[in-house]
Design a protein around this nucleic acid. Structure first.
Length: 411
RNA sequence: GUGGGCGUAGCUCAAUAGGCAGAGCGCCUGUCUGUGGAACAGGUGGUUGAGGGUUCAAGUCCCUUCGCCCACCCCA
């Protein structure tokens, strides 16, 4: 929860810095919403689907973009475009769990709906880079690979591949990095490609300058450069993304660790999603990042701050004995009224045990209140990290604690 | 959906060929009657995931079942 909250705060801060508004969508959606729009396997085999009491099939959302499209389409005439929205919430996929993949996970989604321009695409890419920068990932740790589906479609036609094969061929292209050349070629042959076509495709996928044939990408890269994030971004002809609804620019962020790469997030431009759910034609661009892979990457690079796991209260009031217990309770509340977060030990125990509890749970200042202090209208304050303690007038307690916390190392 | 691995104390793991279920850490107590972290001593802690079977005897062998992990697939 601490890590997720930190990710949420980092995503929120970056999204808000670009002027995006937070929204939430339903967790249950009608199965129809996803039909033929997300990709067959995601919906038919990897979603939780069941019948509701009315006999309709409902789905625990496996992704957010179709819900977003539906929500925007339903209010299309009253919303003001360009629309910049972001969301962070739970998703479910009925898959076998493994490292970096669970059946319930959280995902950050962010979309810019309205303008179909290279600078809109560049903004989303820049948001990714800005997020990486915020959590401490450098261009040496992560890279954002960009491509354009229209560009690849045009090129496929020019080497003689028919549009009705594009879905299969995209899957093939997406796997260029994952399979050995021999396996990839035999997969290509299974899809019915001729040797001549396979050779042409390989040349295409090795062409790092292919982007210069795309007006969209010719606009995108200078815009990313102007935003200051070109170190994070490069062209990659084999990046195509698995979801069927992408129509233009697509991108994917990868972590590079010792020769192995892992996909952190993916996104792209979708032109037809709003009209598919009953809206007027309107283009959008966005991406989704799951919480699991990014957490693995950040853990591996030791980038998760230890401070996110500190307790909510750094101050603990101890209880000396039964006679003074209510005095301790009152003192704790007095300190809360002064604006401090305070944990009051909830029973009578030996002081040593209470201090040990405080030490183990991350308490910085222990407050001691026994017969001596009561007699003198004073309070003893012990710094648990240094072991030093001081006795001050009771009226000075809150002020002294605040000074002690300021002098403490924030870690 | 496919393939592989693993379930023993709170945690990490031992237990020869089927033969008295153990260790380290943690926790509790004491050394130390108003003071945590260290040391030492003692103590607590188990339906060996569950159910059935074989056997004089099962953590160990067999069957069923539940759960977890890893990879493929797919994808965040």
């Amino acid at each position: 929860m601490a890590v997720r909250k930190w990710l949420y705060e980092s995503a929120r801060s970056v999204a808000e810095s670009f002027g995006y508004q937070e929204y939430e969508a339903p967790i249950l959606e009608s199965l129809d919403l996803y039909a033929a729009k997300s990709g067959d396997e995601l919906v038919k085999e990897q979603s939780f689907v069941f019948e509701d009491r009315g006999g309709n099939l409902v789905t625990l959302r496996p992704e957010l973009t179709p819900s977003l499209a539906r929500m925007v389409a339903q209010r299309q005439n009253q919303l003001v475009f360009p629309l910049r929205w972001w969301s962070f919430g739970p998703f479910w996929r009925y898959e076998r769990p493994q490292k970096g993949r669970t059946r319930e996970f959280f995902q950050w989604n962010i979309d810019l709906i309205g303008p179909n321009t290279p600078s809109a695409d560049a903004e989303l890419v820049a948001i990714v880079a800005s997020f990486f920068q915020k959590v401490g990932l450098s261009p040496e740790d992560t890279q954002i690979l960009v491509n354009n589906r229209q560009l690849i479609e045009t090129e496929l036609i020019s080497i003689g591949i028919q549009p009705d094969k594009f879905t299969d061929i995209f899957r093939l292209i997406d796997r260029r990095d994952k399979l050995s050349t021999a396996n990839w070629e035999s997969y290509a042959a299974d899809l019915g490609l001729q040797t001549k076509e396979i050779d042409a495709l390989q040349i295409l996928l090795a062409d790092q300058n292919l982007w210069q044939k795309s007006d969209s990408l010719l606009g995108l890269f200078p815009a990313v450069d102007a935003l200051g994030y070109s170190d994070y971004v490069r062209y990659a002809p084999h990046v195509i993304r698995g979801l069927d609804y992408y129509t233009g620019t697509v991108f994917e962020a990868q972590a590079i660790r010792g020769g192995l790469t892992r996909s952190i997030l993916g996104g792209g431009r979708y032109d037809n999603l709003l009209s598919d759910v009953g809206g007027k034609a309107l283009s959008g661009v966005g991406f989704a990042m799951g919480d699991l892979v990014i957490t693995l990457v950040l853990e591996e690079l030791d980038l998760i701050p230890a401070s996110i796991k500190s307790p909510s209260a750094l101050i603990m009031v101890t209880v000396f004995n039964e006679d003074t217990q209510l005095e301790s309770v009152s003192l704790a509340e007095e300190l809360r009224q002064a604006g401090l977060n305070v944990n009051c030990y909830p029973q009578v125990d030996k002081i040593g045990k209470q201090l040990k509890y405080g030490d183990r749970t991350g308490i910085k200042v222990a407050v001691l209140l026994g017969p001596d202090e009561l007699a003198n209208q004073s309070i003893t304050l012990k710094d648990l990290s240094t072991g030093s303690q001081q006795t001050v007038a009771r009226t000075e307690t809150a002020k002294t604690i605040i000074q002690m916390l300021e002098n403490t190392d924030p870690s």
